[in-house]
């Protein structure tokens, strides 16, 4: 799976953000965006991992979810909690959608059968 591009983009993004956040925290508090704390990021990651495991177990996972989770964990590792929370949220949403898709298809597929 060609997630090579995603990694480079993520590394670059993380590096820029790290520099930015180091400077930003000391200089001024960004009031418009709520600061995502480490705990909030961790909670988002845990929820995303749990949902992803359900989709994996059901064999209905999308290839985009593991990529997003990897990037989320990577961001968390480098202290980019807002980035980690954002990606974890997307991963969780997509895993949920994969499960819903499977549930709907469980009955819908029969409408497509050539009779």
């Amino acid at each position: 799976m060609r997630n090579f591009v995603g990694n480079t983009a993520t590394k670059f993004f993380v590096a820029v953000l790290m520099l930015g956040s180091l400077g930003g925290v000391a200089a001024h508090a960004d009031t418009s965006k709520p600061v995502v704390t480490q705990d909030m990021a961790l909670a988002a990651l845990t929820a995303a991992d749990a949902e992803a495991q359900k989709a994996d177990a059901a064999g209905v996972q999308w290839t985009t979810v593991p990529t997003l989770l990897k990037a989320a964990h990577f961001a968390y590792l480098y202290g980019d909690y807002s980035g980690a929370a954002k990606k974890a949220g997307m991963a969780e949403a997509q895993a949920k959608t994969a499960l819903t898709e499977a549930k709907e298809q469980a009955s819908l597929w029969q409408t497509q059968v050539i009779r």
């Binding site: 209905v60 999308w62 290839t63 985009t64 997509q94 994969a98 898709e101 499977a102 298809q105 469980a106 819908l108 597929w109 029969q110 497509q112 059968v113 050539i114």
Partner: peptide, 20 residues
């Protein structure tokens, strides 16, 4: 048969979407 007609993945296609 179910697998063939079930839509899956982010693109939400089944085998039948393309091959039928």
């Amino acid at each position: 048969e179910a697998y063939f007609y079930t839509r899956r993945g982010q693109l939400n296609f089944s085998c039948a979407s393309c091959h039928v």
